[in-house]
Nucleic acid binder design. Structure first.
Length: 487
RNA sequence: GAUCGCAUAGCUCAGCUGGUAGAGCAUUUGACUUUUAAUCAAAGGGCCCUGGGUUCGAAUCCCAGUGCGAUCACCA
């Protein structure tokens, strides 16, 4: 028939379905020469006239096709063969025509020209949506819901499930609004190595790879903290990076082997200042993504409007267990764990025991955004010692809906203290702790050149997006979550 | 890593105590010039996840495996 199913030339679009549906006014007579392109998602043929639904990037709109209008001469092939027979759901077409309202009251594009843009060889899942006349709610039939198929063929998921598309648009807004906020403060977006000779900056098992020319092992980064602090040494006042981190650990609904974190370091600040910054930033992000400061997460309504409650870790334990652990030694803490029915083992030090109690008894209660401050020194080798409290560091984590979404310190900039703390980690590693940090001599050397007092912050972007889109699974906020091999 | 659940047509799902594989939508053919989950008439469509076993006979029962999900443990 001489029809190219995959034409090379461009097709100029001058309107989107959403704009037409929102702004068409029969009295004004606007949108009388529109060109749209998209996929055919439904077809209703009735002899010499037909209706179809065209889906473009903004949504769907009904189109009306009349045989004698798209085929004015004797040759009715374009309508009878091409439109009625060959055109399948999922095919891309370009149309030109004018907007009007049907007898049923639906804004529709009356097609004058019709062009094949691309053929779909595989059938799309057909998802039907109908408005229930009694309730007014939209009911969905034959939804494409199988999680395995949705994740493996995300492209199909995105075509047929508009709510999925919406999640990823929000994810983009999370990152963009945060980036805009940082840029407005004059901080610099930077990039640091993903392939690192040492996997520093966090406690996790890395992925290992090998560089052929250098003939040396390289690690996919588990964190970028140590590199960002080198840049503060180098004289930047504020640096931040959005980037993928890689951890070779278990997978579940909140863990993917690669995930996105945002880390920021600002010179001449401390963790108290950082709490104020985070409040301001998250409030703006929440408004950008959801339109307001309140967001529904599961059964709770979270309000991201600052200021957030601030509670030291010891006080939080006292509040939810009635026990003051602040002066306890390791043996006493072990007794407390026993009393609270928390399992412990001998490798756990004082810091770990406190963390266990916190995790078991406090975390779940922290629904509205809450800063937990001042952590035991043992678990935090990169944070500065507390200015007044012995045995603690200047650190906070932000908890929302019972989950941690941000972690921040007054950064340790004393090179002698830093070396000792990393050496303590080494001895932990020798005792069998496979999550202990490694010594990074160059990083300590950088601190020896002098780093200004600095506050640093890390936010898990995937987790934050899950919260702001009310998704319980990380796979719902990643386009392509890691899957096992397809059989 | 442990426990539990699921796997049948392109999609969503039935399929009982074992006896020729089912529906709706989609697809194909035909009718229909403003329909809207269009309608009406007809047709095609299956490695019942894989491999063993029990049985005269297995989608169904048993064992093993694979994939996915949920809960738990570890972590962000």
């Amino acid at each position: 028939m001489g029809i190219n199913p995959y034409p090379a030339e461009k097709f100029d679009v001058n309107a989107f379905s959403k704009d037409i549906k929102e702004n068409y006014d029969a009295e004004k007579g606007n949108y009388q020469e529109v060109s749209l392109a998209g996929r055919i998602m439904m077809k209703r043929v009735m002899g010499k006239a037909s209706f179809a639904e065209l889906q473009d990037s903004s949504g769907r709109i009904q189109i009306y096709v009349n045989r004698d209008e798209i085929c004015p001469g004797e040759d009715k092939t374009l309508y009878n063969q091409v439109f009625k027979k060959l055109l399948d759901i999922g095919d891309f077409v370009g149309i030109s025509g004018f907007a009007f309202v049907t007898r049923m009251g639906e804004i529709t594009v009356h097609v004058k020209e019709f062009k094949y843009l691309s053929k779909s060889l595989r059938p799309l899942p057909i998802v039907k949506r109908i408005k229930n006349e009694e309730t007014g709610e939209e009911e969905i039939f034959d939804a494409f819901t199988d999680p395995e198929l949705r994740y493996r063929r995300r492209y199909v998921d995105l075509v047929v499930n508009p709510h999925v598309r919406e999640v990823f648009l929000k994810r983009s807004k999370v990152i963009n609004s945060m980036r805009n906020y940082f840029n407005d403060q004059g901080w610099i977006e930077v990039e640091t190595p993903i392939l690192q000779p040492l996997h520093g900056g966090a406690a996790a098992r890395p992925f290992v790879t090998h560089h052929n020319t250098l003939d040396m092992p390289l690690y996919l980064r588990i964190a970028n903290e140590l590199y960002l602090k080198r840049l503060i040494v180098g004289g930047f006042d504020g640096v931040y990076e959005f980037g993928k981190m890689f951890r070779n650990e278990g997978m579940d609904r909140t863990h993917n082997p690669e995930f996105t974190s945002m880390e920021i370091y600002v010179a001449y600040k401390d963790y108290v200042w950082m709490m104020g910054m985070v409040e301001e930033c998250l409030e703006k992000v929440c408004v950008a993504v959801t339109g307001g400061t309140k967001v529904k997460v599961g059964d709770n309504e979270i309000d991201f409007k600052g200021p957030y409650r601030r509670l030291s870790m010891y006080d939080s334990i006292k509040e939810y267990t009635g026990i003051d652990v602040s002066k306890m030694d390791e043996a006493e803490l072990r007794d407390v764990c026993k009393q609270l029915h928390i399992e412990t083992d001998n490798s756990m030090g004082k810091g770990k025991l406190i963390d266990e109690i916190f995790g078991e008894k406090v975390e779940d209660h922290l629904i509205q955004p809450t800063y937990i401050t001042d952590y035991p020194i043992e678990m935090t080798p990169l944070a500065k010692k507390h200015r007044t409290e012995e045995g603690l560091v200047e650190r906070f984590e932000l908890f929302v809906n019972g989950k941690e979404i941000a972690n921040a310190y007054s950064e340790l900039n004393d090179p002698i203290d830093q070396r000792e703390r990393l050496e303590d980690q080494l001895s932990l590693a020798e005792r069998g702790d496979d999550e202990a940090m490694v010594m990074d001599e160059d990083f300590v050397r950088a601190l020896e050149y002098g780093m200004p007092p600095t506050s640093g912050l890390g936010i898990g972007i995937d987790r934050l997006t899950m919260m702001l889109t009310d998704n319980a699974s990380i796979q719902e906020v990643l386009f392509f979550p890691q899957m096992k091999k397809e059989v």
